[in-house]
Amino acid sequence: MSSVRAVTVTPEVPDSLRLIEDWPEPAPEEGAILVEALAVGICGTDHEIIAGAYGEAPPGQERLVLGHESLGRVLEDPTGTLHPGSLVAGIVRHPDPVPCPNCAVDEWDMCRNGLYTEHGIKALPGFARDRWRVQPKFAVGLDPVLAPVGMLLEPTSVVAKAWDHIERIGTRAEWKPQSVLVTGAGPIGLLAALLATQRGLSVHVLDRATTGPKPELVRALGATYHASPVSELDFAPDVVVECTGAPSVVLDTMCKAGPTGIVCLTGVSSGGRTIDFDAGALNRELVLENNVVFGSVNANRRHWELAAEALARADQSWLTSLITRRVPVSSYTEAYTSSGGDIKVVLDFER
């Protein structure tokens, strides 16, 4: 085999991003399934790790291989779980070794003690290398139709979990939601809107952009696009999926939800900012209308499988249009340089 290229950082050291041309072959201990990398998606988490905000190398190593939005093709699988040539993605989070009650039943997305590990983020090597290994338990097979867009599985798994929990909370009463508001038209917001349209709901997406691809991508789903503040919307949604993390938007969505409404927060706020806000009025609204606000992050295997099904059902040309740049590994620094017009940037290992 040819040498392994790997995109790496020294965790918590700003601007330490490097392409290593002779990275070691993936160790058998990583998993029985050997995979040839096709692509990895890039998101804000990668940018934060590169900036030195967080990240943790595997035990005994100084550098962390990036990449948690994976897509690969199976080279070898002696377990028979998948077949050579199959498309595969690797689940990002692994349960903690203790384990906590949730990790013990494979709900590692709900880990209670924080000892989980994550590929390309926390103590596990990522997928931004020519070859990687994965345990069968953490390998998700993909429909061949998803070859151009399978790296979208990880962000889709996040919103698949969000919708799973929204619907489970909804069973607390007779609940027949009609309208959904998604705030933010980045990859997570657009994929959340996709899953909402697949549920036959009336979908509204709010974002600040008035030009570029976002408005048309929303309309192509049959959804309605808004560029106005949340407070100016003329309806009270049954469900809100908040994907910006912007504090003012988060608070506005809590106030905007209709009676028995459910607000799911998926955007992560940066903190360190205060807002003059009437907390008492918000409390009154939530209590008197029986509303629920909850946070959602990561996903377990069930959600990854739901996400794979959702992507396979989607309009493939629409999914392809989410990818605004495909950058070859040789130009890796360009892939990790933000551009105001990007929706999803992909690092392409086939080019």
Rank of each mutant, 00 (worst) to 15 (best):
G184W: 06
Q198R: 11
A162Q: 08
P213I: 10
S157D: 04
T211R: 11
T211Q: 14
G189A: 03
K161W: 10
A185I: 02
A160P: 05
T210P: 07
Q198I: 10
I169C: 09
L181P: 01
I169W: 14
H165G: 00
A192F: 07
A162M: 05
G186A: 07
A160W: 07
L194M: 15
A192T: 10
P213T: 10
A209T: 04
L201M: 11
L152W: 12
V203H: 03
L152R: 12
A173R: 15
I166E: 00
T183S: 15
G212P: 01
V203F: 02
K161Q: 14
A196C: 08
L206C: 14
L201G: 04
A162H: 06
V180R: 00
L201C: 05
L195C: 13
A193P: 05
I188P: 07
P187G: 05
L201F: 10
E154N: 05
V159K: 09
A162K: 02
E174I: 15
K214S: 01
R168S: 14
E154F: 08
R199E: 08
L201E: 07
G186E: 02
G170D: 09
D164C: 00
A185D: 00
D164N: 13
G200C: 12
V205K: 01
T183R: 13
I188E: 07
A192Q: 07
E216T: 13
G170E: 05
L152G: 09
D164Y: 14
Q178S: 13
D164L: 01
P215R: 06
T211K: 13
L201K: 02
I166C: 03
L181H: 08
Q178N: 10
P215N: 02
G170Q: 07
A162R: 08
L201Y: 09
S157Q: 12
I169P: 00
V159T: 13
V203P: 03
E174K: 12
I188Q: 06
R172H: 12
G189L: 03
V205G: 01
T156W: 04
H204A: 04
V180T: 06
E174F: 14
I188R: 05
G212Y: 00
A196L: 06
I188T: 11
A185V: 03
L152T: 11
K214G: 00
T197C: 08
T197L: 00
W175Y: 13
K176H: 15
E167F: 12
W175M: 06
G184N: 10
W175V: 10
V158S: 09
E154D: 14
W163C: 12
V205R: 00
D207T: 11
A173L: 13
A173N: 04
R208F: 12
D164E: 15
L181Y: 05
Q178L: 12
S202C: 05
L206E: 06
V180A: 07
K214A: 03
Q178M: 13
G184L: 07
